[in-house]
Design a protein around this nucleic acid. Structure first.
Lengths: 300, 300
DNA sequence: TATAAACCATAACTTACGGTTATGGAAACC
DNA sequence: GGTTTCCATAACCGTAAGTTATGGTTTATA
C-alpha cells in the first residue's frame, strides 16, 4: 500500500484545523509554534496544495483542506480505536479462551484454574468443549479450540506442541461395601478375581489400563464398562466392584473414605496430563496467560 | 485527539504483516532489514504487546496482531483515499464552480472564459446563477455561489472583496430604421427628444444611467423600459428608439451595423465589471483558477 | 554431514529531520 | 501609538530513523 505522505503530520493538521490557530495548536501539541508552522508547510508541499489561509487572527481551512479534514478525522479515530482495542486485548479486558478437555479433566483439574483466572480477568470469556480426545484433536486442528488439556501420550502429534502440566496416578480402588479393607498386597490376578469397573473404550484412561494389563501378560475383559468417568467412581462407591481410577480425579472419594486404594503390584505407571497446542500458530494473549497460570504450579 | 503512537510505523507493520517476512518487507519498503526489525520492535513496545512470532521461515502475526491489522488496513486505505481526493481536487480532475452573474454578463463576458476553462478542465462542473445583483449578493452571503461577476459599484460591500476584471463603456445606440445615420454630435437634450429604450429598475445599468442624467441636471423618464437587457438591443434593432447600451455587450450589433453609436456629449463615464467574493472565505481551488483565468486578460 | 542459504537480532555508526530559541513583520486591539 | 496577537523565517541542536557489518540459528542442498 504505497503510502507516501507522513501520517504523523495529519495529527498536527487535525489540531490546527480544529483549533484554527497555529500558536494555540502548538500549545495543545506541546511543541513550539515554529514546529507546527513547519509541519503544516511540509504537509502542504507533500500534498501539493494549500490547506490553510493564514490571516492575522489565525488560520482557516481552504475548501480542499476541509475535504481533507474529513478523511483525517477518520484516520485518527481509526488509529485511536486500533490502540484501544489492542490495549484491551493485552490488558485482558476482553478476549476469549477456548479450551478442549474431557469432562473429567475439566472438573477435576481445570476448574480451580478457571475460577482463579476468571477472578483476575472477569471479562475474558472461557469456552470449554468436552469431547473425546480424538474429537478434540480435530477441533484443535480446525481452529475450534485454542488448546487442549488431555492425558498423554496423544499419538499423531507431529503438528502439535505438548507441554506436560501435571502427573497422574492411576490405581485400583474399591468401596468397603464391596470389599472389606485389609492390609494386603494384591497381585493382578487376585484383582481380576473380582468384578472390575472401568471406562469403556475408546478412552485414554482405558487404553492405558489395557496396555498395563497387556504388558503384564494379561488379556482382560472388565465386568462393568462405563462411558463417563464420573460414573465409574459412582459405581465403585455403590459397591459394584473394583474400579480403575485416577487418584487426582477421585480425591474426594479417597479422602472421605468412600473409596480406598488397593495396594496392587506391579504399580501402575505414572501418566501425564498435557497442554496441546497447534505448532506454528500462536495462542491469543488471554489463552497464553491461562496456560502460564497452569504451568506456574508445575514449575515449582 | 490524543494519539500517541507513530502512525508511520503502521506502514511498516502492514507491509511486514502481508509479506510475512521482515527481509522481503524491507526490500518492498526500500529500507534495510534492521530498520524494519527496529520499527516493529518500537511499535511493539509502544503498543505494549507482541505483534509477530518470529520463526526461521519468517514472521507470523499473533492473534492480537491480526486484530490490529484490520484496523491498520482501514487507516492506510483511508490515508490513500485522502491523498487521492486532495490530488484530484488540486489537479482539477474534479470540483465545482458556482458563479453568480446576470444573464448579460454571463452571455457576453463569461461565456468565452467558461468555454476555455471547460476545455482545459472538462471534469469541473460549472454552475451559473442568473439573477438580479441584489439577489446574487444574498446568494453569495448564503454560500450558494462561490463568487459574482457583476457591474460595479456594488454598495454594501464591506464584507466582500472586489476585483475589477473589465472596463465597460455605456453609450447611446440606434438603428437606421429609427434614425438615419448622420455625422453629428448630440447633446443630451437632443437625445431626449427621441424615444429612449433602456432597462427597467432595479438594475445596475439603469442606476448608472439615472445617475448620469442627474449629474447633468436632468430628471428623465424613458419611453420604453425593459427588464431583460437582451431585449433592449432587440427593441433598438427593431427601431423603437435610441437605446442605452453597453458597448461590450452589443459588439455584434455594432459591428454588423444593425445598431450604430451616437456621438453624445458629455460622454458616459467608464464603468467597471468586478469579481466579488466574500471576505474571510477562500475560493475553492477550481474557482480560484477560474478567476485567475479571467484576470489574466486584464493584467496585460 | 558439511555447506550454503535464509532470516531475524544486535551493535556501532551516520545523518536527516523534527524539534528548539530568537527574531521579525504585520494586522488587530485598546 | 503602544501592546498584543499571529505566522514566517533563520540558525542551531539532538534524537531517532536510517545505515553497514556481523552473528546465530534454522532450513534447504549437494
Amino acid at each position: 500500500m504505497g503510502n507516501d505522505i507522513d501520517l504523523n503530520l495529519y495529527k498536527v493538521f487535525y489540531t490546527v484545523a480544529t483549533v484554527g490557530n497555529i500558536t494555540k495548536a502548538a500549545e495543545e501539541l506541546y511543541i513550539s509554534q515554529p514546529a507546527v508552522t513547519k509541519a503544516i508547510h511540509t504537509l502542504e508541499t507533500n500534498l501539493g496544495g494549500v490547506l490553510f489561509i493564514r490571516t492575522k487572527k489565525g488560520v482557516t481551512l481552504t475548501e480542499e483542506g476541509k475535504v481533507l479534514l474529513e478523511y483525517v478525522k477518520n484516520i485518527l479515530t481509526e488509529a485511536r480505536n486500533a490502540e484501544n482495542k489492542f490495549n484491551s486485548l493485552i490488558k485482558l479486558e476482553e478476549g476469549k479462551i477456548r479450551i478442549g478437555a474431557s469432562a473429567t479433566v475439566s472438573k477435576h483439574f481445570l476448574m480451580p484454574y478457571i475460577a482463579e483466572f476468571h477472578k483476575m480477568y472477569p471479562n475474558i470469556d472461557i469456552e470449554i468443549t468436552n469431547e473425546l480426545t480424538i474429537n478434540l484433536i480435530s477441533d484443535l486442528r480446525n481452529g475450534y479450540v485454542d488448546f487442549l488439556v488431555t492425558n498423554l501420550p496423544t499419538k499423531e502429534a507431529l503438528d502439535m506442541d505438548i507441554t506436560v502440566c501435571a502427573k497422574l496416578h492411576d490405581t485400583f480402588a474399591v468401596s468397603k461395601k464391596y470389599l472389606e479393607k485389609e492390609d494386603k498386597v494384591y497381585t493382578l490376578n487376585e484383582i481380576l478375581e473380582h468384578k472390575i469397573v472401568t471406562q469403556k473404550e475408546p478412552s485414554n484412561t482405558r487404553a492405558f489400563l489395557n496396555n498395563y494389563m497387556k504388558s503384564n501378560g494379561i488379556e482382560f475383559k472388565p465386568d462393568i464398562e462405563i462411558v463417563s468417568y464420573g460414573l465409574v467412581t459412582e459405581f465403585a462407591k455403590a459397591g459394584f466392584g473394583i474400579a480403575y481410577i485416577t487418584k487426582e480425579f477421585a480425591k474426594e472419594e479417597l479422602e472421605s473414605g468412600e473409596l480406598y486404594e488397593l495396594n496392587v503390584v506391579p504399580k501402575v505407571e505414572e501418566r501425564e496430563l498435557g497442554i496441546v497446542t497447534l505448532k506454528n500458530s500462536a495462542l491469543n494473549y488471554a489463552a497464553s496467560k491461562f496456560v502460564e497460570l497452569i504451568l506456574k504450579d508445575i514449575k515449582e
